[in-house]
Amino acid sequence: MSDFTIDELICTCISRQIVDGELVAQGIATPLVAAGYLLAKLTHAPNLSFVSAIGQALSDTFAPIGIATIEELWLGQGLMSFGFVHGACDFLPRFGPKEFFRPGQVDRYGNFNNLFMGGSYTRPRLRLPGSGGIADVTVFEDKVYLYVPRHGRHTFVEQLDIRSGLGHHPARTTGHGPRYLVSDLGQFDFAPESGRMRLLSLHPGVTLERVQAKTGFPLIIPSPIPPTPEPTAEELHYLRQVIDPLGVRTLELLGGAARKNKLLEILQKEH
């Protein structure tokens, strides 16, 4: 891999899924997505607008990403706040934003789970934070996108422990299953007829064998397999110097002590 990191490639992939003039939704604790949206805004999508969980605000301007300063982005510059009740019942269903979700588990049809992993619902091996709005908007929205910062068999599973996000499933009556997924290994979409996950491109240095070994179900494989386009010098400049100089986006790829150390480093720089 040349002079960019995997977090930068994921942000670039997210950015390139954004169309100028559309509305994107920003969940909580998803800095890779925030950085990708802002990158789109600064490059090819200047007329992008945002709805955010923090503040439940509509916004069309830009501020750098932070942790302690995160509210500046959404509260300091929002056009209006509507609150969660008004947002979930009225504004968001009407606006139909594009949103990137991070599944705890995802199956070959793009159904996903953010409630628990392993064991049973009442006695899980690991309880996850919860479904947020996923069990709502995946039922009726058309523009559901997914991202997985650390591709592995614990996430890409043959069988979900529970389906809290609706994918390409026969029970669907409205909306559309996920359109796209990016991980740290490649880009994927879902075949139109079967709804099955399909490899779109491999990230630099990643082999097909590695992707398939880290995926708990067979993928549809194109031939030939294109490489993921690399970030441009302009994109890297915006990500590193303008959007996220603190590197908040990298937290989503870190675990354990490395993550805690990075958190402390960012918090100290924010003082």
Binding site: S131, A135, D136, T138, V139, F140, I162, R163, S164, G165, L166, H169, A171, R172, T173, T174
Partner: peptide
């Protein structure tokens, strides 16, 4: 319409 088709 929420939850329809999920296991919620």
């Amino acid at each position: 319409r929420a939850w329809l088709g999920t296991e919620m």
